[in-house]
Amino acid sequence: MDYDLAIEGAPDAVPGGTVVLLLHPSTGETDRMDTDFLKTDTDHFLVVSTRTTAREVTQKLEYYDVDEDRAEILDTLSVERGYSRRGASHIHYVSSPDDVDGILSAVESFLADNTGKRRVSFDSLTELAYYADEERALDALVRLGELLEAHDAVALVHVSQEVHDDFVLEQFRDASDLVVELGEGGDVVTDY
């Protein structure tokens, strides 16, 4: 099935199985782009957060008026940092932000357990690389693409372009179907 995109300069729609790589500056304002992606043409969505806790993700969804009834959140930070875990059926946890297998298992469960149009926001691959390493982050991106293809879903994957060298960025690009670059001034360039 096709998914509408609300991304400036990108195609109006992409087929299921598409990985959208969002390259942004470290100071880039990605929340609006992320939440627009999640609330467009979506029945269910999963936010995989290696950068913020479930509580912060929930606050972002509320601020940008995203329907939380369609949301699931995978919090990779709270357990490792010793934060209290919110007891909610739509919030899931893995033991640490470098648990690549646990993260992908949770994504697979989300895709298998929900029907209709499903989206995944992975925020961020850069943080996963920080905790695991760039090679494991690339492996996670490739495996994510395979899961999306198998389940006819789409994902938006965040990468801070200032953190990785050109060779690594090129590997991330090659493992994605659509690349969206957000500039310092908010300008957007896409490569499909």
Rank of each mutant, 00 (worst) to 15 (best):
S121H: 13
L125C: 00
R32F: 05
D4P: 08
M33D: 10
V107W: 06
V163T: 08
G17L: 05
L38Q: 08
N114D: 07
T76A: 14
V189K: 12
P25Y: 13
Q161W: 11
A54R: 07
G28Y: 02
K39I: 04
T50W: 00
D69E: 12
V188E: 06
D41M: 12
L169E: 06
E80H: 07
G16K: 01
S109E: 13
L138V: 03
F45M: 06
D69W: 02
H151R: 05
K117A: 04
T42V: 09
A132D: 04
G82W: 10
D177S: 06
A137Q: 02
L125S: 02
D69G: 13
R173S: 05
H164M: 13
T52D: 15
V179M: 05
V157D: 01
T190Y: 04
L38Y: 10
E162M: 05
G28F: 00
D133P: 00
A13K: 13
E134A: 04
Y93I: 03
D43M: 06
V157C: 10
V189M: 06
S78M: 02
V159E: 08
F167G: 07
D187W: 10
T126H: 01
V100I: 12
I103R: 01
D75P: 09
G102H: 01
A10E: 08
K39E: 12
R55F: 12
D41R: 09
I73L: 03
A137G: 05
V107N: 06
T126L: 01
T35Q: 10
V66N: 12
D177T: 02
L144M: 10
M1G: 15
H24I: 03
L182W: 01
S96E: 14
G16A: 10
Y93Q: 01
H24L: 07
L46E: 10
D4T: 11
E162Q: 14
D34L: 11
E146D: 11
M33I: 15
S160A: 15
P25E: 12
I73Y: 04
K39T: 09
R32E: 14
A88P: 03
A150R: 11
L74F: 04
V48G: 09
L138P: 02
D133H: 01
V120R: 04
V189N: 12
V100F: 00
L147V: 09
A106N: 10
V142T: 12
R85M: 11
M1Q: 14
D166E: 14
A13V: 06
R86V: 13
G183C: 00
L111G: 15
V19L: 05
V168E: 04
V47S: 08
L125W: 03
S109R: 14
L21V: 09
Q161N: 11
D166C: 00
A140H: 02
E135M: 09
R173N: 03
D12M: 11
E108D: 15
E181L: 07
L128A: 04
D65K: 14
T76N: 06
V180R: 05
A155Q: 04
M1T: 14
S109T: 13
T126S: 14
D43P: 11
D191E: 13
F110E: 14
R70G: 10
E29Q: 15
T35I: 09
V48C: 05
Q59R: 15
L178E: 06
H151A: 01
S160K: 14
L104R: 08
A112W: 01
D43G: 13
G17W: 04
V19I: 07
V120K: 05
V163F: 06
L111D: 15
M33G: 08
E68M: 07
L125M: 01
D139E: 11
D174F: 08
